[in-house]
């Protein structure tokens, strides 16, 4: 293995530690799910639930 190649590999290792890769994957996954949720109508469900108050949930009943 040439020195230049070794340097390149170690440089990449330095820049992207394993934990970081995981956090980027999480963020990407999170954004993908946020978008996917829109396609399956999650925001409609959230709105329908948030629009009115549930008295028993508020502890009045």
């Amino acid at each position: 293995m040439g020195n230049a190649r070794l340097n390149r590999i170690t440089r990449n290792m330095t820049r992207v530690p394993a934990g970081t890769r995981l956090s980027w994957i999480l963020v990407a996954l999170g954004i993908a799910l946020l978008i996917a949720g829109g396609f399956v109508g999650d925001y409609g469900v959230i709105l329908a639930n948030a629009r009115t108050i549930c008295l028993s949930c508020m502890g009045i009943q």
Binding site: S23, L26, G30, L33, V40, D42, I46
Partner: peptide, 20 residues
Amino acid sequence: FLVLRRVPIALVGLFAAVGG
């Protein structure tokens, strides 16, 4: 979502994106 037996896709996404 749990009461409706629905998978909370967007909410899990929100938690992962913000927490990440």
